[in-house]
Design a protein around this nucleic acid. Structure first.
Length: 243
DNA sequence: AATTCCATCAACCGCGATCGT
DNA sequence: GACGATCGCGGTTGATGGAAT
């Protein structure tokens, strides 16, 4: 007896998400909070697996996500954490605010791994690959450490430390056609740099009852509303603009 | 200009962990 | 404690775009 599939395979769409699907998912999560993933596709009117919805939300749509390549400081932090935690990407991601495990895993496999190998460092053990290269590898590690900003316990990644355009690409959100379609191009939606504001208590919010289900969204306050400006927020943007 | 190769990253898959009954 | 449902994690795949030929 095999394990049951996570969802009904019949009629379940796979592959890249469309803007419409993203809008439906975001709208649903904003109304109901990120919960009950198995029920999300049905309730949100999506022909997707719940698992796929969760992944799309956590890896791409979550409003607290940073975008763009990891900074040198973040990269160094990943290397340090990987040395102690190994391939526990979710644990590593938990120490880098705004970064996902998938993103870090991809970055490790495509950039950091190669970088370490090039420097003669084993990306698995973090030890020099060969005895003869040990000295230079040690030098390289020390060199990497110059960019280190501090322990993960006390210091977050330093966003101001990026020294190249490649690493200063956090503005790419503006250039992402999907994101700009979702977020920015509608001239009717004002773009503001304000924190999210939500009603307190059991008030209605755009005809949706505000209750504790929304509390988790407060975690996303550090992300500007402009980065997630759906029409349902326009009232708050207007209010903020008038304030 | 056409084709091939390569790098990147979003998304999928399978499995273990956790929770509720 | 057993069982099933659900969630979350890590490994892998495949689509895509850019570089090289």
């Amino acid at each position: 007896m095999g394990r049951q599939p996570c969802c009904d395979k019949l009629g379940v769409k796979k592959g890249p998400w469309t803007v419409e699907e993203d809008k439906k998912l975001i709208g649903f999560i904003l109304s109901n909070g990120p919960c009950c993933w198995r029920a999300v596709p049905k309730l949100a009117g999506l022909r997707r697996c719940g698992k796929s919805c969760r992944l799309r939300w956590t890896n791409y749509l979550r409003p607290d996500l940073k975008r763009g390549l990891l900074t040198e400081a973040e990269e160094q932090l990943v290397i340090d954490l990987h040395a102690t935690l190994g391939n526990r990407w979710s644990k590593i991601a938990a120490r880098l605010p705004g970064r996902t495990d998938n993103e870090i895993k991809n970055h490790w496999n495509t950039h950091i791994k190669k970088k370490l190998l090039k420097m003669g460092i084993d990306p698995v053990t973090h030890e020099p690959l060969h005895k003869e290269t040990e000295a230079s590898a040690t030098d390289n590690l020390a060199d990497l450490g110059k960019h280190h900003v501090g322990s993960p316990e006390t210091n977050g990644p330093d966003e101001n430390s990026c020294s190249s355009n490649e690493n200063c690409d956090n503005n790419m959100v503006e250039n992402d056609p999907l994101i700009s379609t979702l977020l920015g191009d509608d001239p009717d939606i004002p773009q503001l740099d304000v924190l999210w504001e939500f009603p307190s208590g059991e008030e209605t919010f755009n005809n949706v009852l505000w209750d504790d289900n929304f509390s988790s969204l407060l975690d996303f306050q550090d992300y500007g509303i402009r980065d997630f400006s759906f029409s349902c927020f326009s009232n708050f943007e207007m209010n903020s603009a008038n304030a």
